[in-house]
């Protein structure tokens, strides 16, 4: 990305300066309450370099990611606007990209989106005019070529986003995943956030191939991590979420954490503590893996855990940039 205009996003500056980056997530509410967003945003302030604002996550209607992003931004967070291909065609997506940029948003995460049958409007028609890779190409084209997807020139300000995408190292076919990541780099993605990592050896295997292909030099990879709340949550993720890989050892560790604790509240607290501990350990392991440039911390509906985890993982305070970012060769 051409950054001569000095309008880099904070996340981009952090990665460019070679810091181990931290992003986290804020799920907009299932209503029109601005304060709900502001409240969550305040819990996350200072804990991360940027915060993903989810886009109708799990295909459930929520406040628009752009609107919630602006609210979070007003509270001092830097948003990463998630955009799925499920609900909008290329016209709608580009118009939202123009609008999001005009409102001050600087990071975009391009996703296919969970299928609508999982959500609260399974009757809906899905769009998928484009897929996530093509969306990356489109956002990059708006920025680097000043052209709409149709090829028409943008006259005036073009949206200049720092462009992210996701990859699931644990999805099948496993052998293809590093190559698919390479395709995302080729499409022009600047950074990647991965699915939650619980199976560290398998993630290492994935990263070894990614590094062998040199993809980690073309984009920055943030490993997905997150705290488990309970053994039930761990089992659910292991058994029910397609493309998730939660090893039995993790589930057993969560179960063991509550053993011998009769009081329900105390047991729940013990589970949460163990979940946080596992997460902090995983972050330490991620920092040792070649090609991992940061973490994406997903504490779904548990925003309070973010400051605890980042603190214990030694990731605070986050870097700040009073002056333009230091240009480092490594970035």
């Amino acid at each position: 990305m051409n950054d001569s205009d000095g309008a880099l996003s904070n996340l981009q500056k952090v990665l460019k300066a070679g810091h181990f980056a931290v992003t986290t997530e804020l799920g907009p509410p299932k209503n029109a309450d601005a304060e709900a967003v502001r409240h969550k945003a305040r819990l996350l302030r200072g804990c991360a370099d940027a915060v993903n604002i989810t886009d109708n996550q799990t295909a459930i209607v929520r406040m628009s990611s752009i609107a919630a992003g602006v609210l979070a931004w007003q509270e001092g967070l830097e948003p990463v606007i998630q955009m799925t291909c499920r609900d909008r065609n290329r016209l709608a997506m580009q118009s939202d990209l123009l609008g999001a940029y005009a409102l001050g948003m600087r990071n975009i995460l391009c996703l296919s989106g969970d299928h609508q049958t999982f959500g609260n409007h399974p009757q809906a028609k899905n769009v998928h005019d484009m897929d996530s890779l093509q969306l990356v190409q489109m956002v990059v084209g708006l920025r680097d070529h000043n052209r709409f997807q149709c090829g028409e020139e943008i006259k005036g300000q073009s949206p200049r986003f720092f462009v992210g995408a996701a990859e699931n190292p644990f999805g099948d076919p496993f052998d293809w995943r590093p190559y698919r990541l390479a395709k995302k780099a080729k499409a022009g993605a600047d950074f990647i956030q991965t699915q939650l990592v619980f199976n560290v050896p398998r993630f290492r295997q994935f990263m070894t191939k990614v590094v062998e292909l040199g993809v980690h030099r073309q984009l920055r990879i943030l490993a997905g991590v997150g705290p488990l709340k309970s053994p039930a949550a761990a089992r659910y993720m292991r058994d029910q979420v397609p493309g998730m890989d939660v090893p039995d050892a993790i589930v057993e560790r969560m179960e063991a954490a509550g053993q011998g604790i009769a009081d329900k509240k105390a047991r729940a607290a013990a589970y949460k503590e163990e979940g946080i501990r596992i997460c902090v350990e995983t972050i330490a392991q991620m920092r040792e893996i070649e090609g991992v440039a940061g973490i994406h911390l997903m504490a779904i509906e548990w925003e309070e855990a973010v400051s605890v985890i980042t603190e214990r993982a030694g990731l605070l305070p986050r870097p700040t940039f009073e002056t333009p970012a230091v240009v480092s060769e490594s970035a």
Partner: peptide, 29 residues
């Protein structure tokens, strides 16, 4: 492909099956 992806698969592909539908009734990815 449930999402008509031209550069798939998505992250929901698991053991040869699509994330849409469950168990054996799920379509092949």
């Amino acid at each position: 492909c449930s999402k008509q992806l031209l550069n798939g698969p998505c992250g929901g592909s698991s053991q040869g099956k699509c994330e849409v539908g469950c168990g054996d009734s799920a379509p092949d990815c």
